[in-house]
Nucleic acid binder design. Structure first.
Lengths: 116, 116
DNA sequence: TAGCTATGTCGTATATTTGCGACATAGCTC
DNA sequence: GAGCTATGTCGCAAATATACGACATAGCTA
């Protein structure tokens, strides 16, 4: 971002963008779906399920964890990651609100295009 | 993405990630909100509303247009951008389905954490 | 303790994103 | 046509993201 002028935008916009960024990579989407499908938390098996190196997967996990979308619990030798469903529900509401706002306006009609 | 191993993920995951990426910057979120608030399409005024240079804003517009989330119609000297509400509605459904899937699973409970 | 496995950390190479100035193009007006 | 404004395009610099190998750490087990 060079200078990351994010400060110039509203908190809502920044928050939405932050979460969107977390979902902006197929691997992270896949990780969340994986965690959702196995209602029990799995550990580094995640890495085995994805076509990426363990290091890279770990990196993606860190990014999701940084946003608190997922959590990891150490269980002896293994670590169990799981979804933060509470936060996800909040995020879902944010996205719903955003999309509702975006889709409520009239589409750019054929003729009524521009007001000026 | 270095090698962009996106091919290894499902079409759904890639599509979701693509759209998420479009929303992964506050400026682009702001642009969509701006277009939504003025139900009439505005033109390069968008650049004036954002704390970014005209070139940069144009770049963001191009990214949104590449995904067909917005459209631009030339009207003489000015250009009117507007939301593709139809596509946005589809995208909203994708996100809703994704979040529903993600939030339906039981959260990583205190004790029931790991199965192994 | 020695050896094995599961995680996590570091450094690095490459690709992409972001932001912007400088220039090109196109329409409008006098 | 000359001058002005609105858009769009190019190239560059700096910041990030992506991916991975090599090493570090920690727990389990014989």
């Amino acid at each position: 971002m060079t200078y990351a002028k994010t400060a110039a935008f509203t908190a809502d916009q920044q928050q939405l963008a932050r979460v969107a960024k977390a979902l902006a990579h197929p691997a992270r989407v896949a990780i969340i779906q994986l965690l959702a499908s196995k209602h029990t938390c799995i550990s580094g098996d995640i890495a085995a399920e994805l076509p990426l190196s363990r290091t890279t997967v770990f990196q993606h996990l860190q990014e999701l964890k940084a946003l608190d979308l997922i959590r990891g619990e150490i269980d002896g030798l293994t670590v169990c990651y799981c979804l933060n469903t509470e936060l996800l529900r909040q995020v879902q509401q944010q996205f719903t609100a955003f999309f509702t706002e975006a889709t409520s306006g009239a589409a750019c009609g054929p003729a009524d295009a521009c007001a000026f």
